[in-house]
Write a protein that binds this DNA or RNA. Structure first.
Lengths: 98, 98
DNA sequence: CCTTTATGGATAAAACTTTTAATCATGGGA
DNA sequence: TCCCATGATTAAAAGTTTTATCCATAAAGG
């Protein structure tokens, strides 16, 4: 389990790629073939990197790879999910086994 | 990029856990707190391991960890997405940069 | 100043996904 | 034969993702 709240991949995308290369969100969105809104939401942590978006990013920028983008999204999602795990208590299965 | 079509995590779950421990799908579903339908679909590769399901599996069985389940799902999804990448052509961004 | 451009927010709509429930047919054991 | 587990079907509810349009704001350049 990750120890600390992992960064949303949108923050990485924004800082590491868009800002550091001096690109505009509008331009990158149209280059990726998605709406400005979709990209904007991801960058502001209100949207997720889907498998398709991960492949689009890889095709456009090379690195991080699609796999890497999805791992970042996973780490983020998992953290969020674990925080609310009280809402779906599941006990170890071992207990019931012979 | 993975070289070969990765297994759907549902197959792993079915073979490695449910079958090898001699559990029934009905029983595991109710233990996990999801419907039999939901689990059945995953086991037959018609459903996905969501972050919440990954945590449920980890809480019930310990290993594989939630992170591991999500990686398996990622590998599968990514493969599927790459197969249809013709449907969303994206060119390298380098070309347009100064 | 004034104009253009980039951006995030709000709103609404469409498409898709996930989950559930109920029901049915099949096939294996006891 | 009877019961149980299973996958399939159908239908419904809930949630997510993406898009489009419009607006307010702010920054950049003339």
């Amino acid at each position: 389990m990750a120890m600390f709240n992992p960064a949303h991949p949108g923050e990485i995308l924004k800082e590491l790629i868009i800002e550091s290369l001096g690109l505009t969100i509008t331009d990158v969105a149209s280059h990726l073939g998605v709406s400005r809104k979709t990209l904007s939401k991801i960058l502001n942590t209100h949207g997720s990197i889907t498998p398709e978006m991960a492949v689009r990013l890889e095709l456009a920028f090379g690195k991080p790879t699609a796999d890497h983008w999805l791992r970042m999204q996973n780490a983020f999602d998992l953290w969020q999910t674990r925080q609310q795990k009280a809402s779906f208590q599941v006990s170890p299965y071992n207990v019931q086994m012979a």
